[in-house]
């Protein structure tokens, strides 16, 4: 599932390319930073990314998830650090939904 989620994140990042002054370099794959040093996303960029991902997960997998929660915001290791950490976090949200 991680592969599908990573693909969704990649598509969501591509979607906002026209709004970014510098394109997001995803050559590092899952290690691509999303927030913090080395990232070009600002808070609005992150919001857009999250909204797009939620929308695509719902469309492609039929599962409604809410990515931003108190848990996500207060996690010791931010799920928004890299593509990989976000994919992992989203996968866990989906699995929880599936088993609920």
């Amino acid at each position: 599932m991680n592969q599908t989620i990573s693909q969704i994140i990649q598509t969501a990042l591509d979607a906002q390319a026209p709004l970014l002054s510098v394109p997001i370099d995803t050559s590092e794959g899952e290690a691509t930073p999303l927030l913090g040093p080395g990232s070009v996303l600002d808070s609005l960029g992150l919001v857009t990314l999250i909204l797009n991902i939620e929308e695509m997960v719902e469309m492609q997998m039929g599962i409604a998830i809410t990515i931003v929660s108190e848990k996500a915001m207060s996690a010791y290791r931010s799920p928004f650090a890299t593509i990989g950490s976000l994919a992992e976090f989203i996968t866990s949200l989906i699995q929880k939904k599936q088993h609920a």
């Binding site: 906002q16 390319a17 026209p18 709004l19 919001v47």
Partner: peptide
């Protein structure tokens, strides 16, 4: 987004 880029400040661009 291409249309909005030069025409609206970032905060005004629809995100949903």
């Amino acid at each position: 987004y291409e249309f909005c880029h030069q025409k609206l400040p970032a905060a005004y661009i629809p995100r949903k």
